[in-house]
Design a protein around this nucleic acid. Sequence first.
DNA 1: CCCACAGTTCGACCGCTGGTCTAAACACTA
DNA 2: TAGTGTTTAGACCAGCGGTCGAACTGTGGG
Lengths: 203, 203
Amino acid sequence: MPLPRFYKLDPEQRENLLGAARAEMLEHGYEGASFNRVIERAGISKGAMYYYFADKADLYRTVTETIAEEAMAAFGDLGPVSTPAEYWGGLEGMMQRALMWITSQPQLAEIGKSVYANQGGVLDSLRARLLEGVSDILKQGQDVGAIRTDFPLGLLAEAATGMMMGADRWFTEHFAEMPSEEVMRISFAVYGLLRQLLEPQGK
Amino acid sequence: MPLPRFYKLDPEQRENLLGAARAEMLEHGYEGASFNRVIERAGISKGAMYYYFADKADLYRTVTETIAEEAMAAFGDLGPVSTPAEYWGGLEGMMQRALMWITSQPQLAEIGKSVYANQGGVLDSLRARLLEGVSDILKQGQDVGAIRTDFPLGLLAEAATGMMMGADRWFTEHFAEMPSEEVMRISFAVYGLLRQLLEPQGK
DNA sequence: CCCACAGTTCGACCGCTGGTCTAAACACTA
DNA sequence: TAGTGTTTAGACCAGCGGTCGAACTGTGGG
């Protein structure tokens, strides 16, 4: 969260600062991005930058947040659900939209994933929010009997997210040399894997 | 991999260098460790350090490798398996030993986990080796009919590892405020979750 | 009209980082 | 002893994130 003054800046300049930071991060990744270069890119002085952002982490966190928001908007939501079938249908739709966004914006997605990989760093709050979002979705599933209730919700969310991230990793490594219908087939199978993990057992 | 000369050093000095680096990493984590401080700790000059290691990443990678080897030794192996029951019994044993090692050496385990979290960095080769190890174990299971064969092996390995890492994350966040028998109970349940994910379906 | 003052911008400077390089010390053989 | 290759020392470098005092700008009051 930038210092409050940041939001009194005219939108053009705000966009300029965040844009410069985003460009730098896209070029060099989250770790490799240089604060000094961002400042240069934005064409302002160091003093000014520190006048609006507490520190480097503050700026990068802000940028990452905007990316996360874009992703969430692209993923959409479940839609109205009152039966397990509707729930799983809604989830499948979300997953498809997510897959599309990730493949169409691979660099942005890379930064998004670094939020999940982050451990005990500055992105922790964002990570917590992500997990909360997943938990909410699972909770909805429990309410209509689509998701098992024999595990702590948080554990289920971590396990499911971890599994999906693992699968995603495999995809990013292999999907270049795969025919696209194979990608579709396997990603649908992964959806089945997730469903198998999360559905109530003994049915 | 250090430069070949490193292995001509007398073992005491070798231990000294790696020990200094390990201490630094335990104190400040993988990211926060300073090469200059390691040099100071080891009591040698910068020139000497660069004479034995190509760069900072080289040294840290070497230390991380030794930790990984310790972990592998602590986890043990499956033992002889020729039936699904034996396989799952062996795996349960490995998981129990892993859990014990992780809880008894939390700092070392933290560094070990950073190998998995690592994305496109210097630890990539180590990460690949880890995934290979998991794949080998799953392959053994496939040979005795304990593990499903309807997914690419690498994908299964990534998904399973990701799920376990997610579960582990939940544990490290919650196990402090949990009675130890609850920990046992849930970790066994997670083993069941893994098994459910990996067993051939329709049985 | 000018002063005072808050808000804003500037860039020199700081300690530290990982990494390079020259020169000296050392070991060993001819 | 001279010469050669190996090993050590530490001054030095550019770049990093971050600090700070000075300067500039705009505004309201005497």
